[in-house]
Nucleic acid binder design. Structure first.
Length: 427
RNA sequence: GGAGAGGUGGCCGAGCGGUUGAAGGCGCACGCUUGGAAAGCGUGUGUAGGCUAAUCCCCUACCGAGGGUUCGAAUCCCUCCCUCUCCGCCA
């Protein structure tokens, strides 16, 4: 959420910056200032009356204690109360209108990111490793996975529906191995503390990180209970500190969490229908940071590197791109995507998205820190995938596939598979 | 799910219709004291909003949340949420 005060004082700047996300993004701002003026007018008028009321009531008390008549004072308060109620109702209505508008306005893009309307304007920042040289036509992860008995999409469709998968045997083991490997690297080497949060959260949490109210159709919602399935661990982990004032010396706070993620994928009909790329349920190890505002730029860089370290240890070729203003998510100010090379698709596919949300989520979720003796300030929040396990599974199968149809297990992963060096050999 | 107890400031804990943002204690900060420290003494110590050049004043709100009664509510009434104990159920 943007700061109404800042908008009031820097309207043109805010407009210009928002418009970078796309024409019309800033239109909502126009409906903001009039109710804001009205709200403040009603508020100060009401407060003046409340002050008068307080004094009169005290006077009534004093008079009654002395056994004197106070009817005139009591009548006057009654009259004042009616006006106060009117003013308070009006300012509450304005406030709600302002809040609803603000919740629908995205974060300001960072000045450092490129202009552009869609992913074609994203810029490659760096490239790591190189494409594997395969002496044969690469198979897709679906072909490999089904042939080696690692994946079963048919039965998944039977028990749940489309966009679900069953990992089985060594496939299940590989998935678990990848998850554990990622958590271990993030906790033991990159300094994150592990959290294992609820996968169902309330609407306050969804609003805190920006999924609600605008993106409800992308979420799975319980019918009989007020819960939503999390679309990413970002939600429970960022909201871990909702409505809190953190100690300055505790920052930066870095958490990592493994959770399954649930997404309706409404509006993506026909897109990535085959395989593990786009599922209603997938697994992810997430990285979340709470930092001092002046540190968030550098903390984003290190968070990206922490995510990259997984790909590097596995020896997977990838590139880092910075998203342009038009392609970036609603709450983010700056986003880097990690895209891993997929031989079967002959392209790079997103496997991680790392963002600096500046104070946007912090203001929604009221996450602050106390700076010395001065007033609490909003922290900056960041998060990124470290990484998406399903897509990493895809990348491992496809990049390490061998001519004989087996898959080589990258060395870093072998301890997680009981030392197994090749998948599919026995078959 | 049933029965009961409870939610007050950083923490503990009073208050149970009137001048209480809230006694007292602990903690913390600063000062005095001291060779130094402890003890002791003194002062201060919440958040949000409005006003403002201002994190100074001043004003308003906040005692789990939301309503209500009243001239006046932390205190009375209603609804909801959360925590704890016991019972039931259960991985």
């Amino acid at each position: 959420m943007l700061d109404i005060k800042y908008i009031r004082e820097h309207l043109e700047t805010v407009k210009t910056r928002l418009e970078r996300r796309g024409q019309g993004t800033a239109d909502a701002l126009d409906g903001l200032l009039i109710p804001e003026e009205e709200r403040r007018r009603c508020l100060s008028e009401s407060e003046m009356l409340k002050n008068k009321k307080k004094k009169l009531s005290a006077e009534v008390g004093r008079l009654k204690q002395q056994g004197q008549e106070a009817t005139r004072e009591m009548e006057e308060v009654k009259t004042i109360n009616a006006t106060i109620k009117e003013l308070d109702d009006k300012s509450a209505a304005c406030e709600d209108q302002i809040l609803q508008t603000l919740l629908g306005i995205p974060n300001l893009p960072d000045d450092s990111i490129p202009d552009g309307a869609d992913e074609s304007a994203n810029q490659e920042v760096r490239l790591w490793g190189q494409k594997p040289e395969l002496s044969f036509a690469p198979k897709t992860h679906v072909e490999i996975g089904e042939k080696l008995g690692l994946l079963d999409f048919k039965r998944a469709a039977k028990i749940a529906g489309s966009r679900f998968a069953v990992y089985k045997g060594v496939g299940a083991e590989l998935l678990r191995g990848l998850i554990n490997f990622m958590i271990d690297v993030q906790t033991r080497e990159n300094g994150y503390q592990e959290l294992y949060p609820p996968f169902l959260v309330n609407k306050e949490s969804m609003q805190g990180t920006g999924q609600l109210p605008k993106f409800e159709e992308e979420l799975f919602k319980m019918r009989d209970d007020p819960y939503y399935l999390i679309p990413t661990a970002e939600v429970p982990v960022t909201n871990f500190h909702r409505d809190e004032v953190l100690k300055e010396e505790s920052l930066p706070i870095c958490y990592t969490a493994y959770t399954p993620c649930f997404r309706r994928e409404a509006g993506s009909y026909g897109k990535d229908t085959a395989g593990l790329i786009r599922q209603h349920q997938f697994d992810k190890v997430e990285l979340v940071k709470f930092v001092r505002p002046e540190q968030s730029d550098t903390e984003l860089e290190s968070l990206v590197q922490n995510a990259e370290s997984i790909l590097q240890k596995l020896g997977l070729h990838y590139r880092v791109v910075v998203l342009c203003a038009g392609d970036m998510g609603f709450s983010a100010a700056k986003t880097y995507d990690l895209e891993v090379w997929l031989p079967s698709q002959n392209t790079y596919r997103e496997i991680s998205s790392c963002s600096n949300f500046t104070d946007y989520q912090a203001r929604r979720a009221k996450i602050r820190y106390k700076k010395g003796d001065s007033k609490p300030e909003f922290v900056h929040t960041l998060n990124g995938s470290g990484l998406a396990a399903g897509r990493l599974f895809v990348a491992v199968l496809e990049n390490f596939q061998q001519k004989d149809g087996t898959v080589r297990v990258p060395e870093a992963l072998r301890p997680y598979l009981h030392g197994q060096e090749v998948i599919g050999k026995a078959h």
